[in-house]
Design a protein around this nucleic acid. Structure first.
Length: 369
DNA sequence: AAAGCGGGGGT
DNA sequence: ACCCCAGCTTT
Protein backbone atom coordinates (compact mmCIF):
# COMPACT_ATOMS: atom_id res chain seq x y z
CA UNK A 1 0.00 0.00 0.00
CA UNK A 2 1.53 3.38 -0.97
CA UNK A 3 1.45 6.63 0.94
CA UNK A 4 -1.38 8.05 -1.08
CA UNK A 5 -3.67 5.13 -0.18
CA UNK A 6 -2.84 5.51 3.49
CA UNK A 7 -3.79 9.16 3.39
CA UNK A 8 -7.11 8.26 1.74
CA UNK A 9 -7.86 5.64 4.37
CA UNK A 10 -7.20 8.09 7.16
CA UNK A 11 -9.45 10.63 5.53
CA UNK A 12 -12.21 8.04 5.36
CA UNK A 13 -11.81 7.23 9.02
CA UNK A 14 -12.18 10.87 9.97
CA UNK A 15 -15.44 11.19 8.06
CA UNK A 16 -16.36 7.85 9.67
CA UNK A 17 -18.69 6.36 7.07
CA UNK A 18 -21.15 3.74 8.29
CA UNK A 19 -19.96 0.29 7.30
CA UNK A 20 -21.66 -3.12 7.41
CA UNK A 21 -18.71 -4.80 9.15
CA UNK A 22 -19.14 -2.50 12.16
CA UNK A 23 -22.64 -3.87 12.63
CA UNK A 24 -21.82 -7.51 11.87
CA UNK A 25 -19.06 -7.44 14.51
CA UNK A 26 -21.60 -6.06 16.98
CA UNK A 27 -24.13 -8.73 15.96
CA UNK A 28 -21.63 -11.54 16.53
CA UNK A 29 -21.05 -10.24 20.05
CA UNK A 30 -24.74 -9.66 20.91
CA UNK A 31 -26.45 -12.42 18.92
CA UNK A 32 -29.88 -13.16 20.39
CA UNK A 33 -31.11 -16.70 20.07
CA UNK A 34 -34.74 -16.83 18.87
CA UNK A 35 -36.94 -19.83 18.04
CA UNK A 36 -36.78 -19.15 14.28
CA UNK A 37 -33.03 -18.56 14.12
CA UNK A 38 -30.32 -21.16 13.68
CA UNK A 39 -28.10 -21.53 16.72
CA UNK A 40 -25.15 -19.11 16.90
CA UNK A 41 -22.84 -22.11 16.31
CA UNK A 42 -24.70 -23.12 13.14
CA UNK A 43 -24.91 -19.52 12.01
CA UNK A 44 -21.13 -19.21 12.34
CA UNK A 45 -20.84 -22.21 10.01
CA UNK A 46 -23.05 -20.47 7.48
CA UNK A 47 -26.00 -22.81 8.01
CA UNK A 48 -29.16 -21.13 6.72
CA UNK A 49 -32.49 -21.48 8.55
CA UNK A 50 -35.45 -23.39 7.07
CA UNK A 51 -37.36 -21.21 4.57
CA UNK A 52 -40.68 -22.42 6.03
CA UNK A 53 -39.68 -21.24 9.49
CA UNK A 54 -38.33 -17.92 8.18
CA UNK A 55 -41.58 -17.31 6.30
CA UNK A 56 -43.81 -18.32 9.23
CA UNK A 57 -41.91 -16.10 11.65
CA UNK A 58 -41.84 -13.12 9.27
CA UNK A 59 -45.61 -13.26 8.71
CA UNK A 60 -46.21 -13.41 12.47
CA UNK A 61 -43.76 -10.57 13.07
CA UNK A 62 -45.52 -8.14 10.73
CA UNK A 63 -46.41 -5.17 12.99
CA UNK A 64 -46.03 -7.52 15.97
CA UNK A 65 -43.36 -7.63 18.65
CA UNK A 66 -40.94 -10.53 19.12
CA UNK A 67 -42.33 -11.19 22.59
CA UNK A 68 -45.89 -11.57 21.32
CA UNK A 69 -44.85 -13.95 18.54
CA UNK A 70 -42.62 -16.49 20.31
CA UNK A 71 -45.27 -18.82 21.77
CA UNK A 72 -47.45 -18.68 18.67
CA UNK A 73 -44.49 -19.58 16.47
CA UNK A 74 -43.55 -22.53 18.68
CA UNK A 75 -47.14 -23.80 18.76
CA UNK A 76 -47.60 -23.51 14.98
CA UNK A 77 -44.31 -25.26 14.27
CA UNK A 78 -45.16 -28.12 16.65
CA UNK A 79 -48.62 -28.58 15.12
CA UNK A 80 -47.70 -27.97 11.47
CA UNK A 81 -43.97 -28.82 11.09
CA UNK A 82 -43.83 -28.28 7.31
CA UNK A 83 -45.50 -26.09 4.71
CA UNK A 84 -47.23 -29.22 3.41
CA UNK A 85 -48.80 -29.86 6.81
CA UNK A 86 -50.02 -26.27 6.97
CA UNK A 87 -51.39 -26.38 3.42
CA UNK A 88 -53.59 -29.36 4.26
CA UNK A 89 -54.81 -27.88 7.57
CA UNK A 90 -58.38 -26.72 8.08
CA UNK A 91 -58.60 -22.91 7.84
CA UNK A 92 -60.73 -22.68 10.99
CA UNK A 93 -58.05 -24.55 12.93
CA UNK A 94 -55.48 -21.99 11.73
CA UNK A 95 -57.76 -19.11 12.78
CA UNK A 96 -58.23 -20.71 16.22
CA UNK A 97 -54.48 -21.05 16.64
CA UNK A 98 -53.97 -17.45 15.47
CA UNK A 99 -56.68 -15.98 17.78
CA UNK A 100 -55.26 -13.17 19.93
CA UNK A 101 -52.34 -12.35 17.63
CA UNK A 102 -54.29 -9.81 15.55
CA UNK A 103 -54.40 -8.81 11.87
CA UNK A 104 -56.36 -11.93 11.01
CA UNK A 105 -56.00 -11.55 7.25
CA UNK A 106 -52.45 -12.72 7.90
CA UNK A 107 -53.78 -16.10 9.03
CA UNK A 108 -56.01 -16.51 5.99
CA UNK A 109 -53.19 -15.45 3.66
CA UNK A 110 -50.84 -17.82 5.50
CA UNK A 111 -53.06 -20.71 4.52
CA UNK A 112 -53.43 -19.47 0.92
CA UNK A 113 -49.68 -19.02 0.63
CA UNK A 114 -48.95 -22.50 1.97
CA UNK A 115 -51.33 -24.01 -0.57
CA UNK A 116 -49.74 -22.02 -3.39
CA UNK A 117 -46.25 -23.12 -2.38
CA UNK A 118 -47.39 -26.75 -2.34
CA UNK A 119 -49.54 -26.59 -5.47
CA UNK A 120 -47.42 -24.32 -7.66
CA UNK A 121 -43.89 -24.78 -6.35
CA UNK A 122 -43.86 -28.43 -5.28
CA UNK A 123 -43.66 -27.56 -1.58
CA UNK A 124 -40.48 -25.47 -1.83
CA UNK A 125 -40.47 -21.70 -1.42
CA UNK A 126 -39.28 -19.66 -4.43
CA UNK A 127 -35.97 -17.89 -3.81
CA UNK A 128 -36.32 -14.60 -5.70
CA UNK A 129 -37.93 -11.36 -4.47
CA UNK A 130 -40.41 -11.06 -7.39
CA UNK A 131 -41.68 -14.62 -6.99
CA UNK A 132 -41.91 -14.29 -3.21
CA UNK A 133 -43.77 -10.98 -3.55
CA UNK A 134 -46.36 -12.61 -5.77
CA UNK A 135 -47.44 -14.89 -2.89
CA UNK A 136 -50.40 -13.96 -0.62
CA UNK A 137 -49.38 -11.94 2.44
CA UNK A 138 -45.83 -11.29 1.22
CA UNK A 139 -44.98 -7.66 0.37
CA UNK A 140 -41.76 -5.70 -0.15
CA UNK A 141 -40.38 -6.24 3.31
CA UNK A 142 -41.21 -9.92 3.76
CA UNK A 143 -40.02 -10.89 0.27
CA UNK A 144 -36.66 -9.23 0.89
CA UNK A 145 -36.37 -10.67 4.40
CA UNK A 146 -36.99 -14.25 3.23
CA UNK A 147 -34.61 -13.87 0.26
CA UNK A 148 -31.84 -12.48 2.49
CA UNK A 149 -32.28 -14.66 5.58
CA UNK A 150 -33.29 -18.00 4.05
CA UNK A 151 -31.51 -17.78 0.68
CA UNK A 152 -28.50 -15.52 1.29
CA UNK A 153 -29.59 -13.00 -1.36
CA UNK A 154 -27.93 -9.55 -0.93
CA UNK A 155 -31.17 -7.54 -1.19
CA UNK A 156 -32.19 -4.42 0.75
CA UNK A 157 -34.45 -5.34 3.66
CA UNK A 158 -36.39 -2.39 5.09
CA UNK A 159 -38.73 -2.60 8.08
CA UNK A 160 -39.75 0.04 10.62
CA UNK A 161 -36.55 -0.36 12.63
CA UNK A 162 -34.36 -0.02 9.57
CA UNK A 163 -36.27 3.05 8.37
CA UNK A 164 -35.43 4.69 11.68
CA UNK A 165 -31.76 3.70 11.64
CA UNK A 166 -31.18 4.74 8.02
CA UNK A 167 -33.09 8.02 8.45
CA UNK A 168 -30.81 8.82 11.40
CA UNK A 169 -27.54 7.66 9.85
CA UNK A 170 -28.08 9.89 6.80
CA UNK A 171 -30.35 12.50 8.38
CA UNK A 172 -33.12 12.07 5.82
CA UNK A 173 -35.45 15.05 6.23
CA UNK A 174 -38.10 13.90 3.80
CA UNK A 175 -41.17 12.54 5.60
CA UNK A 176 -42.44 8.97 5.39
CA UNK A 177 -43.87 7.39 3.32
CA UNK A 178 -42.16 9.45 0.57
CA UNK A 179 -38.82 8.79 2.27
CA UNK A 180 -39.14 5.03 1.67
CA UNK A 181 -37.42 5.23 -1.71
CA UNK A 182 -34.21 7.01 -0.60
CA UNK A 183 -34.13 4.85 2.54
CA UNK A 184 -34.26 1.66 0.49
CA UNK A 185 -31.51 3.03 -1.76
CA UNK A 186 -29.26 3.75 1.23
CA UNK A 187 -29.97 0.32 2.75
CA UNK A 188 -29.06 -1.28 -0.58
CA UNK A 189 -25.77 0.61 -0.65
CA UNK A 190 -25.00 -0.49 2.91
CA UNK A 191 -25.99 -4.17 2.54
CA UNK A 192 -22.93 -6.44 2.17
CA UNK A 193 -22.57 -9.25 -0.37
CA UNK A 194 -21.59 -11.59 2.46
CA UNK A 195 -24.05 -12.45 5.24
CA UNK A 196 -26.90 -10.21 3.96
CA UNK A 197 -29.42 -12.06 6.15
CA UNK A 198 -27.36 -11.59 9.30
CA UNK A 199 -26.89 -7.95 8.37
CA UNK A 200 -30.64 -7.38 8.04
CA UNK A 201 -31.32 -9.13 11.35
CA UNK A 202 -28.51 -7.17 12.98
CA UNK A 203 -30.09 -3.91 11.84
CA UNK A 204 -33.45 -4.98 13.27
CA UNK A 205 -31.86 -6.05 16.55
CA UNK A 206 -30.10 -2.71 16.71
CA UNK A 207 -33.38 -0.87 16.15
CA UNK A 208 -35.09 -2.98 18.83
CA UNK A 209 -32.36 -2.39 21.41
CA UNK A 210 -30.08 0.65 21.04
CA UNK A 211 -31.50 2.75 18.20
CA UNK A 212 -34.90 3.08 19.87
CA UNK A 213 -37.51 5.70 18.94
CA UNK A 214 -36.91 7.59 22.22
CA UNK A 215 -33.59 8.07 24.03
CA UNK A 216 -31.39 5.97 21.74
CA UNK A 217 -28.21 4.60 23.38
CA UNK A 218 -25.80 6.16 20.90
CA UNK A 219 -22.78 5.65 23.17
CA UNK A 220 -23.18 1.87 22.80
CA UNK A 221 -24.02 1.90 19.09
CA UNK A 222 -21.63 0.31 16.58
CA UNK A 223 -22.33 3.26 14.27
CA UNK A 224 -21.43 5.89 16.86
CA UNK A 225 -19.44 8.64 15.19
CA UNK A 226 -20.81 7.64 11.77
CA UNK A 227 -24.38 8.83 12.36
CA UNK A 228 -25.48 12.22 10.99
CA UNK A 229 -28.35 12.59 13.47
CA UNK A 230 -26.10 11.78 16.43
CA UNK A 231 -23.57 14.34 15.17
CA UNK A 232 -26.15 17.13 15.55
CA UNK A 233 -27.80 15.63 18.66
CA UNK A 234 -31.21 15.43 16.96
CA UNK A 235 -31.83 11.67 16.87
CA UNK A 236 -35.49 11.70 17.92
CA UNK A 237 -36.43 13.92 14.97
CA UNK A 238 -35.89 10.93 12.64
CA UNK A 239 -37.61 9.37 10.84
CA UNK A 240 -39.86 12.34 10.00
CA UNK A 241 -43.50 11.20 9.81
CA UNK A 242 -46.82 12.72 8.82
CA UNK A 243 -49.07 13.58 11.80
CA UNK A 244 -51.54 10.91 12.87
CA UNK A 245 -55.32 11.12 12.66
CA UNK A 246 -57.21 10.92 15.91
CA UNK A 247 -59.32 7.85 16.64
CA UNK A 248 -63.10 8.18 16.95
CA UNK A 249 -65.05 6.22 19.58
CA UNK A 250 -67.74 3.81 18.43
CA UNK A 251 -70.43 2.35 20.66
CA UNK A 252 -72.64 -0.70 20.52
CA UNK A 253 -74.15 -3.53 22.53
CA UNK A 254 -73.10 -7.17 22.80
CA UNK A 255 -75.53 -9.97 23.63
CA UNK A 256 -74.55 -12.93 25.77
CA UNK A 257 -76.98 -15.82 25.32
CA UNK A 258 -76.30 -18.36 28.05
CA UNK A 259 -77.64 -21.91 28.34
CA UNK A 260 -78.39 -23.66 31.63
CA UNK A 261 -75.11 -25.58 31.51
CA UNK A 262 -73.15 -22.33 31.04
CA UNK A 263 -72.65 -22.68 27.27
CA UNK A 264 -72.63 -19.45 25.21
CA UNK A 265 -74.11 -18.90 21.76
CA UNK A 266 -71.37 -17.86 19.33
CA UNK A 267 -71.54 -16.67 15.74
CA UNK A 268 -69.05 -16.49 12.88
CA UNK A 269 -68.30 -13.02 11.55
CA UNK A 270 -68.52 -12.22 7.83
CA UNK A 271 -65.52 -13.23 5.73
CA UNK A 272 -64.61 -9.63 4.89
CA UNK A 273 -63.70 -6.57 6.94
CA UNK A 274 -62.82 -6.21 10.60
CA UNK A 275 -62.13 -9.52 12.43
CA UNK A 276 -63.25 -11.37 9.29
CA UNK A 277 -64.20 -15.04 9.72
CA UNK A 278 -63.52 -14.92 13.45
CA UNK A 279 -65.87 -16.07 16.21
CA UNK A 280 -67.97 -13.54 18.16
CA UNK A 281 -71.17 -13.04 20.15
CA UNK A 282 -74.13 -11.24 18.51
CA UNK A 283 -73.84 -7.43 18.66
CA UNK A 284 -75.56 -4.35 17.31
CA UNK A 285 -73.75 -2.39 14.66
CA UNK A 286 -71.08 -0.11 16.13
CA UNK A 287 -71.94 3.54 15.74
CA UNK A 288 -69.51 6.40 15.40
CA UNK A 289 -70.85 9.01 17.79
CA UNK A 290 -69.23 11.83 15.81
CA UNK A 291 -71.15 10.82 12.71
CA UNK A 292 -74.33 12.01 14.42
CA UNK A 293 -75.87 8.57 14.85
CA UNK A 294 -74.96 8.29 18.53
CA UNK A 295 -75.64 4.92 20.08
CA UNK A 296 -78.62 5.01 22.38
CA UNK A 297 -78.51 2.26 25.00
CA UNK A 298 -82.30 2.51 25.33
CA UNK A 299 -82.77 1.30 21.75
CA UNK A 300 -80.21 -1.50 21.95
CA UNK A 301 -82.85 -4.08 22.78
CA UNK A 302 -84.63 -3.36 19.49
CA UNK A 303 -81.61 -4.87 17.77
CA UNK A 304 -81.29 -7.80 20.16
CA UNK A 305 -81.80 -11.41 19.04
CA UNK A 306 -85.52 -12.21 18.97
CA UNK A 307 -87.59 -13.79 21.71
CA UNK A 308 -85.18 -13.48 24.62
CA UNK A 309 -85.38 -11.46 27.82
CA UNK A 310 -82.10 -9.55 27.89
CA UNK A 311 -81.00 -7.72 31.00
CA UNK A 312 -78.38 -5.01 30.83
CA UNK A 313 -75.31 -5.60 32.96
CA UNK A 314 -73.44 -2.86 34.73
CA UNK A 315 -70.20 -1.67 33.24
CA UNK A 316 -68.82 -1.76 29.68
CA UNK A 317 -66.13 -3.55 27.73
CA UNK A 318 -63.65 -1.26 25.97
CA UNK A 319 -61.09 -2.03 23.33
CA UNK A 320 -58.92 -0.05 20.93
CA UNK A 321 -58.44 -1.07 17.32
CA UNK A 322 -56.09 0.39 14.76
CA UNK A 323 -58.42 3.22 13.77
CA UNK A 324 -61.13 3.54 16.46
CA UNK A 325 -61.96 2.99 20.12
CA UNK A 326 -64.87 0.69 20.91
CA UNK A 327 -67.21 0.76 23.91
CA UNK A 328 -69.67 -2.12 24.25
CA UNK A 329 -72.62 -2.38 26.65
CA UNK A 330 -73.24 -5.96 27.75
CA UNK A 331 -76.66 -7.62 27.77
CA UNK A 332 -77.36 -11.16 28.90
CA UNK A 333 -80.28 -13.57 28.54
CA UNK A 334 -80.89 -17.20 29.48
CA UNK A 335 -82.02 -19.53 26.75
CA UNK A 336 -82.49 -23.25 26.33
CA UNK A 337 -83.56 -23.03 22.71
CA UNK A 338 -81.83 -25.57 20.51
CA UNK A 339 -80.68 -22.87 18.06
CA UNK A 340 -81.19 -19.19 18.89
CA UNK A 341 -80.76 -16.61 16.14
CA UNK A 342 -78.61 -15.42 14.46
CA UNK A 343 -77.07 -18.63 13.12
CA UNK A 344 -74.25 -19.95 15.30
CA UNK A 345 -73.30 -22.67 17.74
CA UNK A 346 -73.22 -23.38 21.46
CA UNK A 347 -69.76 -23.30 23.02
CA UNK A 348 -69.38 -24.88 26.46
CA UNK A 349 -67.10 -23.53 29.18
CA UNK A 350 -64.69 -26.31 28.22
CA UNK A 351 -64.68 -25.59 24.48
CA UNK A 352 -64.67 -21.81 24.54
CA UNK A 353 -60.95 -21.56 25.19
CA UNK A 354 -60.21 -23.11 21.81
CA UNK A 355 -62.59 -20.90 19.82
CA UNK A 356 -61.32 -18.37 17.27
CA UNK A 357 -62.29 -15.46 19.52
CA UNK A 358 -60.36 -12.22 18.92
CA UNK A 359 -59.38 -10.32 22.06
CA UNK A 360 -62.38 -7.96 22.07
CA UNK A 361 -64.80 -10.90 22.21
CA UNK A 362 -62.57 -12.77 24.62
CA UNK A 363 -63.06 -9.74 26.89
CA UNK A 364 -66.83 -9.84 26.32
CA UNK A 365 -67.30 -13.54 27.12
CA UNK A 366 -65.11 -13.21 30.21
CA UNK A 367 -66.92 -10.04 31.30
CA UNK A 368 -67.83 -9.83 34.98
CA UNK A 369 -69.74 -6.76 36.22
C1' DA B 1 -51.18 8.32 -1.28
C1' DA B 2 -54.48 7.04 2.03
C1' DA B 3 -57.32 4.00 4.52
C1' DG B 4 -58.43 -0.42 6.73
C1' DC B 5 -56.70 -3.85 9.51
C1' DG B 6 -55.23 -6.05 16.17
C1' DG B 7 -53.14 -6.20 20.05
C1' DG B 8 -49.90 -5.33 23.53
C1' DG B 9 -45.91 -3.24 25.74
C1' DG B 10 -43.20 0.84 26.79
C1' DT B 11 -43.12 5.55 28.34
C1' DA C 1 -52.62 9.20 26.53
C1' DC C 2 -49.51 8.38 22.88
C1' DC C 3 -46.00 5.80 20.48
C1' DC C 4 -44.43 1.92 18.14
C1' DC C 5 -43.96 -2.66 16.46
C1' DA C 6 -39.41 -7.92 11.49
C1' DG C 7 -46.45 -4.53 6.98
C1' DC C 8 -50.00 -6.06 3.51
C1' DT C 9 -54.04 -5.21 0.74
C1' DT C 10 -57.47 -2.46 -1.15
C1' DT C 11 -59.22 1.87 -2.62
Amino acid sequence: MDDKTIVTDLACKETAAADASLLLDWYDRHHRTLPWRTSPADAALGVLPEPYQVWLSEIMLQQTTVGAVKDYFTAFLARWPTVTDLASADEDDILKAWAGLGYYSRARNLHKCARTVVDEYGGRFPETVPELKSLPGIGDYTAAAIAAIAFDEPVAVVDGNIERIIARLYRIDEALPAAKKPIKQRMGDLTPQERPGDFAQAMMDLGASLCSPKKPACALCPFTGACAAEAVGDMERYPVKAPKKEKPTRRGAAFLIRRGDGALWLIKRPDKGLLASMAAVPTTDWFDKKAGEGFDPATALEKAPDGLAFKKKTGQVTHTFTHFHLLLEIYEAASDEARPTPEGWWSTPQSIKGEALPTIFRKVVEFVP
